[in-house]
Amino acid sequence: MDPSESFAEYARARAPSLVRFGYVLTGNQHDADDLAQEALIRLGAAWERVRQKGDPEGYVRTIMVRLHISWWRRRRRERLVGAVPERGYDDGGLADVDSRGGLWQALRGLAPRQRAVLVLRYYERLSDEQVAAVLGISRGTVRSTAFRALERLRSDLGGTGSAARSLLSRRSS
């Protein structure tokens, strides 16, 4: 198959999944689209080389995670010097999915690297070693980041609604 055809086939087959991955990483549809799109552009430009190595999915998801963190940091710095009046970005779809006592909202309040660690652990089901490889950090940093992120979620959930309190009581029982 022609390389451009095989990439197009791959992109069409995997894009919905990558957008979903981007959605849980970023917390909104627009950034998810941009993230998946930019990662696929980079993959497409290196398609022959990456395909020969046999793991385009790992390649593109690693790009997405790293881009997400670096974009957020860069945007944060740009916003510090910018006239953007309010922080953050909300998306209408998120309210619909947050039936778990504010857990998703609390997740979105985490720093991007904390969120990325949790997404890779609990959405992608990666081991801490694999998460470390994706993020380019040590396994110890992965574990400490996950610990702090979970502590933060516990803390945040402690102040929210009945579903969260139910969750907390289940956890402590």
Binding site: A15, V19, F21, D33, A36, G93, S99, R100, Y122, L167
Partner: peptide, 27 residues
């Protein structure tokens, strides 16, 4: 908490809409 978290992330991922045709053109 971890179990609920995994469920919440899965549900959130399911709420994402599929890419629009323009998505592929831009790629």
């Amino acid at each position: 908490l971890e179990e609920e978290l995994a469920q919440a992330i899965q549900e959130a991922g399911g709420a994402a809409r599929a890419p629009l045709p323009q998505f592929y053109t831009e790629i």
